[in-house]
C-alpha cells in the first residue's frame, strides 16, 4: 500500500505539492492526471523514496518497487539487453529473460544496440521492459506511453495491463483515455494536491 498523509514538497522556497492525502491499496491501479510540470513525477519520486516530503508523511509497503522513469535513464554504455539485464541478476544466466522482455515490447532486433542508437520511443520501451522485468509488487510508471509510436500503443497498453494485474500501480499520465485504460482510480491535480476524480 502507498499512503500519502498531508504530504507536501518544496524545492527550496518553491512549494510543488501541498497537503496531498492519497491512499493506494494493494493491487489497486491509480493514475495521476495533470498538466506537465504539475508535480506528478515528484509524487512518484516520493513514492519511490527518491525524495522526502517536506511536510506530512509518505508510507510505502512494498517488497520491491519497479520504476519506469519519464526520461529513460538507461546506462549509455550498455546495450538495450544489458540495460534490462542490469536489474535482473546482471549475469549470463538472466540474459535470456532480459531478451524475452525486449521481445515483449517489440525490441528483439534492437537488443544489441546502445541507447544512443535508439529513437526516443525505443528507449522508452527499453525503460518499460526494464521495469516489467524487475517484477516488483509495486509498479511506478511516469508517462509510460510518452514518445511511443501510435502503432505500438495498443500492444504496450495490453502488456502493461496484463503485467500489472495483481500488483499495485501508480502512474503519472496526461491522457485521460489512457489513464482509464490502465487505472481503476484517477486523481486529478488541483491546487497543489491530487483529488479523486469521480
Amino acid at each position: 500500500m502507498i499512503s500519502f498523509e498531508k504530504a507536501g514538497l518544496s524545492y527550496g522556497e518553491k512549494p510543488v505539492l501541498r497537503n496531498v492525502t492519497l491512499r493506494v491499496q494493494p493491487g489497486e491501479h491509480a493514475a495521476l492526471l495533470g498538466p506537465s510540470g504539475c508535480g506528478k513525477s515528484s509524487l512518484l519520486n516520493l513514492a519511490a523514496g527518491l525524495l522526502r516530503p517536506t511536510e506530512g508523511t509518505v508510507t510505502v509497503n512494498a517488497r520491491r518497487a519497479a520504476y519506469a522513469f519519464q526520461e529513460a535513464r538507461l546506462l549509455p554504455w550498455r546495450t538495450a539487453a544489458e540495460n534490462v539485464n542490469a536489474v535482473l541478476d546482471d549475469s549470463a544466466a538472466t540474459m535470456l529473460q532480459a531478451l524475452a522482455w525486449l521481445e515483449a515490447v517489440g525490441l528483439a532486433d534492437a537488443a544489441d544496440k546502445l541507447p544512443a542508437e535508439l529513437s526516443g520511443g525505443m528507449r522508452q520501451r527499453v525503460n518499460l521492459a526494464r521495469a516489467l522485468a524487475y517484477d516488483g509488487d509495486l509498479l511506478l510508471l511516469d508517462e509510460p506511453l510518452k514518445e511511443l509510436d501510435p502503432s505500438r500503443l495498443d500492444s504496450i497498453l495490453s502488456l502493461l495491463r496484463t503485467h500489472a494485474a495483481g500488483k499495485t500501480l501508480l502512474l503519472a499520465i496526461h491522457d485521460i483515455g489512457q489513464a482509464r485504460a490502465l487505472a481503476d482510480s484517477l486523481y486529478v491535480f488541483r491546487d497543489m494536491t491530487f483529488v479523486p476524480q469521480k
Binding site: A65, Y67, F69, R73, L75, A86, V87
Partner: peptide
C-alpha cells in the same frame, strides 16, 4: 545523478553500482 537514482530504485548491490554506473 539520475543513473544513481535508477540504481537505487532497482536496488543494485554496491559492486554493481560501482561497476555499471561509477566506473564508466
Amino acid at each position: 545523478r539520475q543513473l544513481l537514482e535508477m540504481a537505487r530504485v532497482y536496488a543494485f548491490p554496491p559492486w554493481r553500482t560501482v561497476r555499471r554506473v561509477f566506473a564508466p
